[in-house]
């Protein structure tokens, strides 16, 4: 008995060691960014290693006084949440239709929706630019909302669909004999039952939207519609040179909300990702 327990204990120990090392490896860039962001600019570019860094809020102050950071942040938040909202409003009914109704061409339509994801974004960049220019939407947050929503719609639809397929058909039959209409079934039975799936899909869409760079750069030609990710790029040029500490701080700040959300829902997230991958 004792020897068995000891080998078990050893194994557990090794497991913690490996996982701990991996966690450290993953979190190090974020901590490194934080460390750079909270140091004076001169200290970052010295060639000698520094063991006791000087703490400074220079970068923090600069972000808010020299740059319209608050506006970038507002743009980001509006574009991201707006796009996720658009995605959910469109994807939930679409997913329900794909998961539950029988009609000719249903599977083809499902595939077409997913296939929008298979294209490299650069291929459609130019046409999209003209599309938005002709619609007079260039340089607006609305355009960002629409483009983020369009990019993510297919993934959101498929994740939600896979969750819906998991709901027993009996539940809907039961609601129907209880007297519920299709819309009430969707609203009162299906949506509450797949809430984890909806949250997962929304978070995945959010992460994609936060990281989106190409289309934002294309559509936002002035600071009017800049988001955090494009603002970052601005710190690399201009008369001030590359402002490393500001870049690091913005990157860290952008990382925080995603980190918190992902930790909070990680159980759902892994399920959502694998379900979306495996279910046909």
């Amino acid at each position: 008995m004792a020897s068995i327990r000891r080998t078990g204990g050893e194994k557990l120990w090794i497991r913690y060691l490996i996982l701990g090392a991996w966690a450290l490896f993953c979190i190090t860039p974020a901590l490194w960014f934080l460390s750079i962001g909270l140091r004076p600019r001169t200290e970052i570019i010295t060639p000698q290693p520094i063991y006791w860094p000087t703490f400074s809020l220079d970068a923090w102050h600069m972000l808010w006084s020299d740059w319209p950071m608050a506006k970038y942040l507002r743009n980001s938040v509006a574009a991201i949440f707006g796009s996720v909202l658009i995605d959910l409003v469109l994807a939930i009914p679409a997913a329900y239709s794909l998961a539950r109704y029988e009609y000719r061409g249903r599977d083809d339509i499902g595939f077409y929706i997913l296939s929008t994801r298979m294209m490299a974004p650069a291929i459609v960049a130019i046409p999209i630019f003209f599309l938005f220019r002709n619609a007079g939407l260039l340089d607006t947050v609305w355009a960002l909302m629409l483009i983020y929503a369009a990019v993510n719609l297919s993934v959101v639809t498929w994740i939600i669909r896979s969750y819906m397929l998991d709901i027993p058909k009996e539940l809907e039959d039961s609601a129907r004999t209880d007297g519920a209409s299709d819309l009430r079934i969707l609203w009162e039975i299906i949506i509450p039952a797949i809430r984890p799936g909806i949250i997962t899909a929304a978070v995945i869409a959010m992460i994609f939207a936060i990281n989106e760079f190409l289309f934002t750069l294309l559509i936002a030609s002035t600071p009017k519609a800049y988001t955090m990710s494009v603002a970052l790029a601005n710190f690399t040029g201009g008369s001030d040179g590359v402002i490393y500490n500001a870049i690091a701080l913005v990157a860290f700040l952008a990382f925080i909300p995603v980190f918190i959300v992902v930790v909070a829902i990680q159980k759902h997230l892994s399920r959502g990702l694998t379900l979306g991958a495996v279910k046909g």
Binding site: P168, E170, L171, D173, S174, A175, E188, I189, P192, A193, R195
Partner: peptide, 9 residues
């Protein structure tokens, strides 16, 4: 129904 079909939420 066989599987009861109670609304889980």
């Amino acid at each position: 129904f066989q599987g009861y079909a109670l609304y889980p939420n």
